[in-house]
Nucleic acid binder design. Sequence first.
RNA 1: GGCCUUGUGGUCAAGCGGUUAAGACGGCGCCCUCUCACGGCGCAAUCCCGGGUUCGAUUCCCGGCAAGGUCACCA
Length: 546
Amino acid sequence: MDYKALAERLLPGEFPALSHFEEIYPPRALPEGAEVTRLAPSPTGFIHLGNLFAAIANERIAHRSGGILYLRIEDTDLKRKVDGAVEAVKNALRYFDIKFDEGAEIGGDNTYGPWYQRQRAEIYRAFVKHLIEEGRAYPCFCTEEELSALREEQTKNKQITGYYGKYAKCRNLSEEEIYRNLDAGKPFVIRLKSMGNPENKIRFHDEIKGDITVTENDQDVVILKSDGIPTYHFAHAIDDHFMRTTLVIRGEEWLASLPIHIELFDALGFQRPRYGHNCSLMKQDGDTRRKLSKRKDPELSLEFYRKEGYFARAVKIYMLTLLNSNFEEWYLKNPDAPLEEFKFTAAKMSKSGTLFDLDKLNDISKNELSKLSEEEMFAFLRGWAEEYGTPAQKNYFSDREKTLKVLSLCMGVGGKKRRKDFTTASQAMKFISIFFERTPREDEYRVGGETKRAILNGFLERYDPADDMQVWFSKVKEVAAENGFAAETKDYKANPENYKGSVADVAEVLRIATTGRANTPDLWTIQQILGGEETRARVQAALTAD
RNA sequence: GGCCUUGUGGUCAAGCGGUUAAGACGGCGCCCUCUCACGGCGCAAUCCCGGGUUCGAUUCCCGGCAAGGUCACCA
């Protein structure tokens, strides 16, 4: 068979010599050990936790080693394309502090572009043509119907499904048949003529999983689709070769197609990059666990974390603790060191699927938020409120001084006794709402009726906003004693039968009256911030309410 | 079903021939305390199963089992 003529018929026209591409995409001049990694999303615009997970790993490895992280857009499938997707991806990743050095819409060095695969058609086609000339690729005229019929038959006969060996019927088409099909205008794809044998096992070193066994590929996979665009597999081989990727960190769902990629790199005469296949994030679903799915799990969407007001750094730290098993210990020992100093390695990445644990994330969030200064917390909360808050919440930030006071005195921000009971901006906003709005009462009075009124009245009679905490509290104790409550908790504990309750119960009445909640920070401080007038008004309102 | 990967407390996990089998989250209890929170102390809970190898296996080998992934002109 005249492969040269066939190649010309299939992909007519002049293509640059293959060496041309080697020249325009030369090996990168990087120091020894520098890794070139990439993120290669398809432009669906939906970037999720799994993407972030891989993104952080790729970013850390590249930048730890003094290498390059670039962004490539895998837009070979038109059906997946969504407008504005690249912007969305970049924004989401910027929020988590992932910085690219090169790539689509990045504006760095453009030597290795273009970064959209659709714009690289010429390169792919040149190599496909070359493969055909060498007899390593051939046209296939099978229709989708034929292919699915084949699959059905194989399944029925318990054969391995796919286009291989004796089932690869277009592989053995005569020259005459090929040209007849072509003349008839039949659409075709180009398939790789596989030389592999699945009986052969290859030892392969995966940077994450260690030494693994790979079965040789024998599938005649499609490399060029009927629209003239390559499949992922082929584009991967070409792009990662010419973009000079050294290390491919990708999800373990790709492990199964590794044999294809190995054969493709060999057929093309390219040196392969190293690979690391990372585990996926799982979720407990009933009594089984499964991959996080974007349809069922809102927490997979990065947007979820922004809406809830998670602190970006906390999410990143959680990802890091899952990603590198020794990160958590390091962070415990170096709480103030920049995250960049952690020695991130592919070898320390987890081999097995990890269950996404919201409790753990929440714990990290509390700790991270508790490290912020008043100014930082102010900026963080205001930023969230501006984007997601109610009009009333946006207004919490109009009196800067008051808000700062609330943050430092009642949330302990910037001080030693910090509260750690809110994990997100939205929770923190709810927490401080009592200072800015008369929120509906959330907790019921446990002491009611006459006693409650007597307590409230007793308090009002004595209340003086100028009192310091000691004086204020001794007055509360007086109110307690006057109404049959123990002024000292110890007395109550010793002889509970002598009292209606303790000063704690009295304080609770006052607390609910002023804030609507049974659990709050120190009441005296709250009343100080609210001011005498507002405090009186609220207690008065509670007196007449019910 | 074939192929590949993975199996240490509920979760994330360290350990990789001899350990009282770290640590963190969560749970429970106690202390502190005007409530909550913070903080402190403590408790319960783990080596998938069966065979080997070995004086000795969580660690090594074999065989099961279970879970996950994948078998497209999607990536």
